[in-house]
């Protein structure tokens, strides 16, 4: 956070002068299954600016999760480039921390606190245990899990596990926080709660987050800017603003209009192909 705040502080007044932190440029991603070579995204390009809550939105099979994995460095683009702060991404690294949908992203053999310390220690964020412990406790408190720091993950509910994962990701103070449908496996009430908490956390530090979802509503609530992707393979359909929308707008006219607009954009040409790659998301 220190470096990000530092660099942003100097250019604070002139928004136009702010440079994108992440540039995705004409990226095509492909992966192999046992029998097939699949093109997940085709020449996708977009810029993410500091403090963006940037949402990748699209139906199943639009390659949005694959795109996130590309940004995280798990996959190499076959064409195009992904640059973080000007450097081309070549492998996974702690400057882009990922929060997954799956609950098993927490290491089951480590307690809540140890999970965060594990990240801080191996990510090279801290040198001493005491320092790591202090940061871990700070973020545990931020996600309202004080009292659970010595609990093993299997004792936690789904929402609590996702909170730990978010705390672990934020404690790393990455350049971008990558969130791959982090609330998709939660029940509706918990999801609502988690969206609100995420926005509150964002207000504290204005961290940059890249958020993948297939829910138009969630995209509008959580996101400040939305990239709409077409399915199979993923291609850019539109980039829209949503910074003026949040929970309070759900159900009002403005919200419904944008929602309907995106819906039409995605489903007008009826290319929703659920069977592109069974079992895989995005």
């Amino acid at each position: 956070m220190a470096e990000r705040n530092g660099s942003a502080a100097g250019k604070k007044p002139a928004a136009a002068a702010t440079q994108p932190i992440l540039k995705v440029d004409g990226v095509t991603l492909q992966y192999k299954t046992k029998e097939h070579l699949i093109t997940a995204t085709y020449r996708v390009g977009f810029d993410v600016y500091p403090a963006d809550r940037f949402v990748l939105l699209g139906p199943s099979g639009c390659g949005k999760s694959t795109l996130l994995k590309g940004i995280a460095g798990y996959m190499k683009p076959v064409e195009g480039a992904i640059r973080l702060k000007g450097r081309e991404i070549s492998e996974p690294g702690p400057d882009r921390v990922m929060v997954f949908q799956e609950f098993d992203q927490l290491l089951p053999w480590k307690t809540v606190k140890q999970n965060i310390i594990f990240a801080l220690h191996n990510g090279g964020k801290t040198d001493t245990v005491a320092e790591a412990e202090e940061i871990a406790m700070e973020y545990i408190q931020k996600v309202k899990l004080t009292g659970f720091e010595d609990t093993f993950p299997h004792m936690l509910s789904g929402g609590m596990k996702q909170r730990v994962a978010i705390a672990r990701g934020m404690a790393m103070e990455p350049d971008v926080l990558l969130m791959d449908e982090p609330f998709a496996a939660l029940d509706a009430l918990t999801r609502l709660q988690m969206q609100k908490e995420l926005l509150q956390l964002w207000e504290d530090t204005h961290f940059t987050v890249l958020f993948v979802t297939h829910s138009i509503e969630e995209a509008l609530i959580v996101g400040s800017r939305i990239l709409v992707l077409s399915p199979h393979p993923g291609q850019v359909k539109a980039e829209l603003n949503a910074h003026h929308l949040n929970h309070d707008n759900v159900g009002d006219k403005k919200f419904a209009k944008v929602q309907q607009h995106i819906h039409d954009m995605l489903f007008a040409d009826r290319i929703l192909e659920e069977d592109v790659k069974p079992g895989a998301r995005g």
Binding site: K69, A72, G73, Y74, E91, P92, G93, P94, R96, V97, M98, F100, E102, D104, Q105, L107, F118, A119, N122, G123, G124, M172
Partner: peptide, 14 residues
């Protein structure tokens, strides 16, 4: 070992 856990490990630079 689940794909998610592998990716978590690589994410933190292991």
């Amino acid at each position: 070992v689940s794909e998610t856990q592998r990716m978590v490990g690589q994410n933190y630079g292991l």
